[in-house]
């Protein structure tokens, strides 16, 4: 029973630490993944950004470092509208989601060339294939970078 409890303790600790950064999705031709980081004034959110480019839509999910789906969305290629399907609790407020929808759409414009109007509020920079989109009005920075393969070391 002691071992049982000990394992219980470990597993509960894993609740917070089962990062998906070490994961890979089952490969399909239209699925892409990269690291993401959303930096806000009062904190940041990071993890893996996975997208699936369908015929009529782009599906996207942001999985945070806790292994939890933080944001998922559907971008309709015909209507050019984006719908947030799931937003983690602390971001699940209408005024935050409104900004997120606009920002994610602009990020898709940069990453996948979906249509969007030029907006002076957004500052875009690219370096070595990594992309940074900053909403200067809201002071939110979205960074997308390659995932490091396992042939490196983390320590």
């Amino acid at each position: 029973m002691r071992i049982c409890l000990l394992f219980l303790s470990l597993l509960l600790s894993f609740i917070g630490v089962n990062a998906q950064n070490g994961m890979s999705e089952v490969e399909t031709p239209l699925t892409e993944r990269c690291m993401f980081d959303i930096a806000m004034e009062k904190g940041h959110l990071s993890g893996i950004f996975i997208t699936k480019d369908m015929d009529d839509a782009i599906l996207g999910t942001m999985v945070n470092e806790f292994g939890i789906t933080a944001i998922s969305f559907i971008y309709d290629k015909h209507s050019h509208k984006i719908k947030l399907e799931n937003v983690i609790g602390f971001l699940n407020k209408w005024y935050i989601k409104r900004v997120l929808k606009q920002d994610i759409r602009y990020c898709l414009h940069i990453l996948y060339d979906v249509p969007a109007k030029d907006d002076k509020n957004y500052i875009v920079s690219m370096s070595d294939g990594n992309v940074t989109v900053t909403n200067s009005k809201r002071k939110i920075t979205y960074s997308f970078s390659h995932i490091q393969e396992q042939n490196g070391t983390e320590e």
Binding site: Q20, G22, M23, S24, E25, V26, T28, T31, I48, I50, K52, L59, T61, V63, T69, S72, I74, E85, N86
Partner: peptide, 10 residues
């Protein structure tokens, strides 16, 4: 991942 009908394995 339900939305993507996909899974990630590590």
């Amino acid at each position: 991942i339900s939305l993507l009908s996909d899974k990630m394995v590590s």
